[in-house]
Simulated assay, not measured.
Amino acid sequence: MTEKIARFFEERRPQTPCLVVDLDVVEQNYHALADALPDARIFYAVKANPAPEILRLLTGLGSAFDTASVPEIEMVLAAGCTPDRISYGNTIKKEADIRRAFELGVRLFAYDSEAELEKISRAAPGARVFCRILTSGEGAEWPLSRKFGCDLPMARELLIKARGMGVEPWGVSFHVGSQQKDLTQWDRAIFEVAQLFRELEVLGIDLGMINLGGGFPTRYRSDVPNSQAYGQAIFDSLRRHFGNHLPETIVEPGRGMVGSAGVIESEVVLVSRKSATDRKRWVYLDIGKFGGLAETMDEAIQYPIEVLGDDGSDAAAEPVILAGPTCDSADVLYERAEYRMPADLKAGDRVRIHATGAYTTTYAAVCFNGFAPLQQYCI
């Protein structure tokens, strides 16, 4: 946690739960990735955290944006970005939304099926399109399912079809899974994409772009490689498989851009046991899965959690089960993961949940059980 965030909590004492994002950290993360991948264009994944302050900051730094909906496109434009720096990267779009994005000036669209390609050709004639391929997601803490992308043979056919449908087949995209710590995963995908580029070149289709997706991590409870390590691994792979004929490359960081910039402060609502012999106490916070911590599903993302006033002594800590405040049995954050908290923890104590700048405010339900959406402060 930065001194600026600590000072904000101390001076403002905001009502919990709330998220505080340090914009200086966002800027540092942007520069770190830009320095690590100097030949790639950064398209910030707006879905990670669309706060206007973040979008304005990144626009000023020169970032482009990966968007998933028309409202996200409108948010980015309102932040001062021009439409030539926007990609409509969702492969599942209403035709009316494609048309509206095209009217707003967006000219870069993703697809992974013939039906989606047909919609784009009708609603966005002349646009550039890129086809998303499937990846395994192996090694990612938040793997992406088979919901997005198609296999290589289908991608080849879809890019060939695009040529005759009034749009420009421009590139190929993939995503190796969110919070990806295995540096080799990009190499596997880049190898497949390079093969596809060469096959299409023989047919007279010269693709110009490879979208390397996201996957760049935030440090939670264990160390992750730094931006330079990712940059070097990706650059080496591009050189190995494309030689000196490198296409335009773009990356779509979300978590890696804003995750480490945010801290949530929460209040303990209740500490209890289910029986006199329970080894673990239940600790209920005023934030849970439906308040912004949806990524605790299956305990996939394990946030660092600090109890205010705790001296960090393991001797004074006991294992706990962490849960949210709602009347929903699914609202349990961590039961298997070994979280420990002070033996004298009580209702009213405050905890800070670190590295929560990404995928929290955007996952928060709108008044589920009457609880207000997660409040956010960007400083």
Rank of each mutant, 00 (worst) to 15 (best):
E103Q: 13
P14C: 02
P304D: 08
A276F: 13
V251Q: 10
G208R: 15
V176R: 00
G259E: 06
G166N: 01
A64P: 00
R350V: 06
G166E: 02
I379A: 00
V268F: 09
A317I: 02
P304H: 03
K47V: 03
I42E: 00
V76R: 01
A343S: 15
M209H: 10
E53Q: 14
L203F: 07
K280G: 10
D344P: 04
W142E: 06
K4Q: 15
W282P: 01
V258Q: 05
T218S: 15
L104T: 02
V76A: 01
E114A: 14
I379D: 04
G262I: 04
P153A: 08
V320E: 11
K161S: 15
F102C: 03
A40G: 03
I5P: 13
V25N: 02
T82P: 01
A96G: 05
G357T: 04
S136A: 10
V268A: 05
V263R: 02
P83E: 13
S237D: 05
F235P: 00
G348F: 09
T135K: 03
E74T: 06
T82Y: 10
K94T: 02
T296K: 04
A229T: 12
A364C: 15
A68F: 07
L158M: 14
V176D: 01
E168Y: 02
L19H: 05
D22E: 12
L117G: 12
N49T: 03
A347G: 13
I379N: 01
E138M: 06
K289W: 03
T360M: 08
K94P: 00
F65Y: 07
D187H: 07
T361A: 14
R128H: 14
A162T: 03
E252D: 12
A48F: 08
G166P: 01
T184M: 03
G126Q: 14
G105L: 06
T326N: 07
R188Q: 08
V46F: 03
D84K: 11
H241V: 12
I5A: 09
L183Y: 07
S227L: 07
L108D: 14
S113F: 15
W142F: 14
E252K: 09
L77H: 11
E192P: 00
L285V: 11
L308H: 06
I234E: 01
L207W: 11
R107L: 14
R340K: 11
E295Y: 15
D97I: 12
V202H: 08
T135R: 01
V176Q: 01
R198F: 13
Q302K: 15
S178L: 05
R128D: 14
